[in-house]
């Protein structure tokens, strides 16, 4: 399957379900922080953006992640132009 990758040098961040509601945003574009090389780094960076982000992303977070529309663990690399989604465990079906 073809790789999904957003144009540009920053990151395209997407939020779903209660995370979207709590953060008050569906999506945002940010410059790739210098400290971020992996998904785990990105969680740490998100946790430093204020109390709402800290509550969602710090510690043993319930939040899941997808990089370029594939589920991704903490070790997954983050690169310029990536589409990165954050969401709770899925509950369809």
């Amino acid at each position: 399957m073809s790789e999904v990758r957003a144009a540009g040098s920053g990151l395209h961040l997407l939020y779903f379900a209660w995370l979207r509601e709590r953060l008050g945003t569906t999506e945002e574009r940010v410059d790739l922080p210098a400290s971020v090389r992996t998904v785990a780094d990105l969680f740490a960076w998100q946790a430093g953006r204020g109390p709402t982000y800290r509550a969602a992303f710090a510690g043993p977070s319930r939040v899941r992640c997808a990089v370029n529309q594939d589920f991704a663990g903490g070790d997954a690399p983050v690169r310029p132009g990536d589409e990165i989604a954050f969401f709770p465990p899925v509950t369809g079906g």
């Binding site: 779903f16 997808a66 989604a85 899925v90 369809g92 079906g93």
Partner: peptide, 19 residues
């Protein structure tokens, strides 16, 4: 149910809601 990204929110008859 466990691998496709869908999320359900329930809206109750008393007006409250919950994911």
């Amino acid at each position: 149910k466990t691998r496709a990204p869908f999320w359900k929110k329930e809206i109750f008859d008393d007006g409250t809601e919950a994911w």
